[in-house]
Amino acid sequence: MTADIQITFDCTDPDRLARFWAAVLGYQLQPPPQGFDSWDAALEAFGVPPQERNARSAILPLEGSGPRIFFQRVPESKAVKNRVHLDVRAAPGAEGDARMTALEAEATRVQALGAVRLYRVEPDPATMETGFITMGDPEGNEFCLD
Rank of each mutant, 00 (worst) to 15 (best):
Q30G: 09
Q30I: 09
Q30P: 07
Q30R: 14
Q30W: 02
P31Q: 01
P31N: 03
P31A: 03
P31E: 02
P31L: 02
P32L: 08
P32Y: 09
P32M: 10
P33M: 04
Q34S: 09
Q34D: 03
G35C: 15
G35R: 14
F36A: 00
F36P: 00
D37V: 01
D37M: 11
S38R: 00
S38M: 01
S38N: 03
W39V: 01
W39E: 02
W39I: 06
D40F: 10
D40R: 08
D40M: 06
D40I: 01
A42W: 09
A42Y: 09
L43V: 01
L43W: 11
L43T: 05
E44Y: 00
E44W: 02
A45Q: 07
A45I: 10
F46L: 15
F46I: 07
F46K: 06
F46G: 14
F46S: 08
F46C: 08
F46Y: 12
G47L: 05
G47F: 08
G47I: 04
V48A: 15
V48F: 13
V48E: 13
V48D: 09
V48L: 15
P49W: 13
P49M: 11
P49H: 13
P49R: 13
P49Q: 13
P49T: 01
P50K: 06
P50Y: 15
P50D: 10
P50A: 11
Q51R: 13
Q51V: 02
E52G: 12
E52Q: 13
E52L: 15
R53V: 10
R53Y: 09
R53T: 09
R53A: 07
N54W: 04
N54K: 07
A55Q: 13
R56Y: 12
R56G: 14
R56E: 14
S57Y: 07
S57A: 15
A58W: 05
I59L: 03
I59M: 01
I59S: 06
I59A: 12
L60G: 11
L60W: 05
L60P: 12
P61A: 02
P61E: 11
P61I: 07
P61R: 13
L62I: 12
E63M: 13
E63N: 05
E63Q: 13
E63W: 03
G64N: 08
G64W: 14
G64S: 11
